[in-house]
Design a protein around this nucleic acid. Structure first.
Lengths: 336, 336
DNA sequence: ATATTTTTCCTAAACGTTTAGGTAAATTAT
DNA sequence: ATAATTTACCTAAACGTTTAGGAAAAATAT
């Protein structure tokens, strides 16, 4: 049974009030007393009971993150980097991170509901935003603070980080074109994902500027896993007019594309170009190393967590919109 | 402001006691009343306040998982699969998963202390166990329940899952040998990691049975990242007597080994063999696809979470030790 | 010397549950 | 018909904090 505030107070023969105020750094306690309290509390290993504090303060000091049920493969490295970034920012500020993953849409809905209504978390961080996102609507209606990577088009105002890569996509395409590839294809994700919508838009705008025609059937929708990328690429390469430059919505899909291309006997970087998006760590060790548009995932997560903390502490945000631009990293998969 | 139990009671003109007992399924409330209560509670969107319930029940209904500070790269896919498995088991049982990651040993120690003493979690799940593990000692002394993947040698009794792969390692080595490779090397992890100790032991025992000599300098210790595997392999291949069969302590290191081998102009599968351990999903899409000893990571995590829940509910465990055997998956990286 | 302000600490209530220890009403046993 | 038991509910205390509203003591102002 852990030490309570009463134990500390008794030991020093003072009231619990004084202990509480001393530890929380209020100035209505004498310096001498404060020091004594802090020292004693440390010695006794006293840590405030979270449940009691939460109940009284009506704050959970906990942030919720629910891994979207659409991601069938939770092992996507992307999420691990994201979690890592949030965790770093939060644990430094004495906040905790509550995580769950669910398999069905109903379970996901239920969990949001439970966490909101049981006051288990003070706010949420969202990911993989969709064009119309029920989570955004639900949380907004609940009045619980949240931030997200990506802006949904539900007309709801919330702080977010978004990625802007129109220029970088053009650079990528010019680079690929310069290396002798011209038959472009785009391996994308679910069509209502904001990521997908943006990236496809940048792809299209870049093709236009480069004077490239892309037939309809060269734009494919996958589940953004390496298996999805593998299958889509295999199909593309079997067609009568196979592409020789495959741009993927994320690195994972690109890994699958690399595999499929090699399986078709194509030397990637020479006969065919492949590029990804996100810049996850293993992209460097792919064969050949993967050209990608690198975004600082952990850093974005850290920033999101930081924004949410500002919100929770009632402070004004410097900016409710943060724009991140990726860095084009050219490697062997597009011909050096 | 969410609905409280008092709101529900007032609405029905009964006491909060009756609402509480009805919702918790005790039999000292009339069936008719119970139904009414449940219906009304649902309609009003009532979910018990977690802090209040925790305070009164002295249970957090939350499990803690702290990503070990030794993993410099949190994006290791292994952890994501592990988290996914725990989360699945827990959320099904109405438990939540509290996650944090820390950068230093001190921060890690501090966090365990905080979570234990603030009663923020009811139990822990541990990972990456070391031969002598302060976490095991600390939690055992605290009297808080925990389970782990791996058994430390501190003479402390706790429920755990362990991997047994002596036979499978022999199979792997025979397979590699049969494909014409004979100069073995082992790229391992930190020397006090139970994983490392076990896997190196199996490697050594297999070499003995196969009549293979392995010089001291062919056994290397890394940080188990792809970069670590890359650097270790590069160094090995530059030596006067380079190996032609590299077995790695995990898949991530093996990815780096593949990269280094290719960079040295060696065709993996023909000139050199590489194998991993864990069977993470991307091992299939490596070039060439990676031979590995596949363990069901998510499933192990699920089982660990299940064991911990049994402990927390005061039930007797069927078995305090669960043994998992990996499956040898042979792919191109060892010559098909 | 008295009045005012400041400093330092205290008492007691509150947060929203759960539950020990009841009691009246209904049922069953004698 | 009365006693004993069971059923269905209630009141009030407790969990461990934080904090509003004081109050005594000390310092400062008049």
């Amino acid at each position: 049974m852990p030490t309570t505030i009463r134990d500390v107070a008794q030991k020093l023969n003072i009231s619990v009030y004084t202990v509480s105020r001393a530890l929380d750094g209020y100035d209505d306690v004498a310096d001498q007393t404060r020091e004594l309290v802090i020292e004693t509390a440390n010695k006794m290993g006293y840590v405030p009971n979270r449940a009691a504090r939460q109940l009284r303060r009506q704050k959970a000091e906990t942030i919720g993150f629910i891994i979207p049920s659409i991601s069938k493969r939770f092992n996507e490295p992307f999420f691990m980097e994201f979690i890592s970034g949030m965790g770093e920012e939060l644990s430094g500020k004495n906040y905790d991170l509550l995580i769950s993953n669910v398999n069905t849409h109903d379970a996901e809905l239920n969990l949001y509901h439970r966490w909101v209504n049981s006051r288990k978390v003070d706010g949420f961080i969202l990911n993989r935003i969709r064009k119309h996102d029920w989570r955004v609507n639900f949380l907004s209606k609940s009045g619980i603070p949240f931030v997200a990577l990506g802006k949904s088009q539900d007309g709801i105002d919330y702080p977010f980080v978004r990625i802007e890569a129109a220029d970088e996509y053009l650079l990528l395409m010019q680079h690929v074109q310069k290396n002798g590839f011209s038959q472009f294809a785009f391996i994308g994700g679910p069509t209502d994902l904001v990521n997908q919508i943006d990236r496809l838009k940048w792809f299209r705008s870049a093709t236009k500027k480069c004077g490239i025609e892309v037939p309809r059937d060269r734009i494919i929708s996958t589940d953004m896993t390496s298996m999805g990328g593998y299958e889509a690429t295999s199909a593309l390469l079997k067609s009568l007019t196979p592409p020789d430059a495959i741009l993927c919505v994320n690195d994972e899909a690109a890994f699958g594309a690399l595999h499929a291309a090699r399986e078709h006997g194509l030397t990637v970087g020479t006969k065919i170009a492949v590029a990804g998006f996100d810049g996850i760590q293993d992209s460097l060790h792919a064969e050949p190393p993967l050209t990608t548009l690198d975004i600082p995932v952990a850093d974005i997560a850290r920033q999101l967590a930081g924004m949410l903390l500002e919100l929770l502490n009632g402070r004004q945000l410097e900016s409710r919109e943060i724009v991140i631009r990726p860095a084009l990293v050219t490697r062997g998969s597009t011909g050096g």
